[in-house]
Amino acid sequence: MMEQRPVILVTNDDDITAPGIHALVEAVKPLGKVVVVAPDRPQSGKGHAITLGVPLRLDQVDLFGDIEAYQCSGTPVDCVKLARDKILHGPPDLCVSGINHGANHSINVIYSGTMSAAMEAAIEGIPSVGFSLLDYRFDADFSLAGQVARNLSRYLLEKPLPYGTLLNVNVPIIPAAAVKGIRLCRQANAKWVEEFDERTDPQGKKYYWLTGEFENLDEGEDTDVWALEHGYVSVVPVRFDLTHYELKQQIAKDWPF
């Protein structure tokens, strides 16, 4: 009897035509049966948003050769939900999200549609991982990120993570020969220092563009930011349980209830 190949769901937040998702499909298709469900337009920064109050559209597309693929009018999280319910009719063996154009290290994981898609899969008990390359260019070289994605996806298929967890993987922009290795990290304590650039349209009405600079507040050498700055691929285990257990214990001890 022929052994059934694992089913791998591929998604992203940069949209189904982005070079990064095509690189990811090429990376993981030797590992199993690949199905692609991704947004029909860029959805960066949408976080864990879902679509309410308006219908969702799901259209099959021919963008990946003989690989089954669909574009969705909703968010990255919508894509994962629809894929599980209406296309796969059950959970896949693995969900990979990306490869994102740009970093998703440190605080970016909160805003990232790439990571939220992977997190939604993890909520459903599906082994999942988000991949990002620290290069925003449309013509970025995804060859190294693709190698990393294939190797780590193979590991996840062989040894799935515990329920409630997933991986956040970031790849630096350096030649493959210069990479020092893969480093298991914690999320850096960092934030965006933001401002809104105020402008006036031709009708005299004000409008705003969000601008800002990334500020790393963390001097630790065990963080994802440090690893990426020093030539490593960073891997951060992530969980969606946001409970602060130590604070819970402290409040239980010190507060009168």
Score class of each variant (00 low, 15 high):
Pro30Cys: 07
Ile67Gly: 00
Thr51Lys: 10
Asp40Trp: 06
Leu56Met: 04
Gly45Glu: 00
Ser73Leu: 07
Pro42Phe: 02
Val28Pro: 02
Tyr70Met: 07
Arg41Asn: 07
Val28Ala: 08
Gly45Ala: 01
Ala38Tyr: 02
Arg41Asp: 07
Asp40Arg: 13
Ala49Trp: 06
Arg57Pro: 01
Pro42Glu: 00
Pro55Asn: 01
Val61Cys: 08
Pro76Lys: 14
Pro30Gln: 13
Pro30Asp: 02
Ser73Ile: 12
Gly65Thr: 01
Gln71Pro: 03
Ala27Asp: 06
Leu52Ile: 11
Ala38Leu: 12
His48Tyr: 11
Phe64Gly: 03
Glu26Phe: 10
Leu58Glu: 01
Asp59Gln: 12
Val36Asp: 00
Val34Leu: 11
Gly74Thr: 05
Leu31Trp: 14
Glu68Cys: 09
Ile50Pro: 02
Val37Asp: 02
Cys72Pro: 01
Pro55Ala: 00
Val36Lys: 09
Leu31Arg: 08
Gly53Ile: 11
Gly65Val: 09
Leu56Val: 12
Gln60Leu: 03
Ile50Trp: 04
Val34Cys: 02
Gly47Lys: 07
Pro30His: 12
Pro30Ala: 02
Pro39Ala: 03
Pro39His: 07
Ile67Arg: 03
Lys46Cys: 11
Gly65Phe: 04
Asp59Met: 07
Val25Leu: 11
Gln71Asp: 13
Gln60Tyr: 09
Cys72Trp: 11
Ile50Glu: 13
Arg57Gly: 13
Gln43His: 06
Lys33Ala: 09
Phe64Lys: 06
Gln60Pro: 07
Ile67Phe: 10
Gly32His: 13
Leu63Thr: 05
Val35His: 07
Gln60His: 11
Gly65Tyr: 05
Cys72Phe: 08
Val54Gln: 11
Tyr70Asp: 03
Val37Gly: 00
Gly32Cys: 06
Gly74Asn: 08
Val25Thr: 00
Val54Glu: 15
Val61Tyr: 07
Phe64Ser: 03
Asp59Leu: 08
Val54Ile: 15
Gln43Trp: 02
Ala49Met: 13
Ser44Asn: 08
Leu31Gly: 01
Thr51Glu: 14
Leu58Tyr: 02
Gly53His: 14
Tyr70His: 13
Ile50Cys: 07
Lys33Asn: 14
Ala69Lys: 09
Val25Phe: 14
Ser73Arg: 05
Pro76Leu: 13
Thr51Tyr: 10
Pro30Ser: 08
Gln71Ser: 15
Ala49Ile: 03
Leu58Ala: 02
Lys29Pro: 01
Ala38Thr: 02
Gly53Lys: 10
Tyr70Arg: 11
Leu63Gly: 06
Pro39Trp: 04
Lys33Gly: 05
Val61Ile: 01
Pro42Thr: 04
Lys33Ile: 06
Pro39Ile: 12
Ala27Ser: 09
Gly47Trp: 10
Val28His: 08
Gln60Trp: 09
Val61Glu: 15
Ala49Phe: 10
Ala38Gln: 09
His48Cys: 08
Ser73Phe: 02
Pro76Ala: 03
Gly47Thr: 07
Gln43Pro: 04
Leu52His: 13
Pro39Glu: 05
Asp66Ser: 11
Lys46Thr: 15
Val35Trp: 14
Val25Trp: 15
Leu63Val: 03
Gln43Ile: 04
Gln71Tyr: 10
Gly53Thr: 14
Val34Tyr: 09
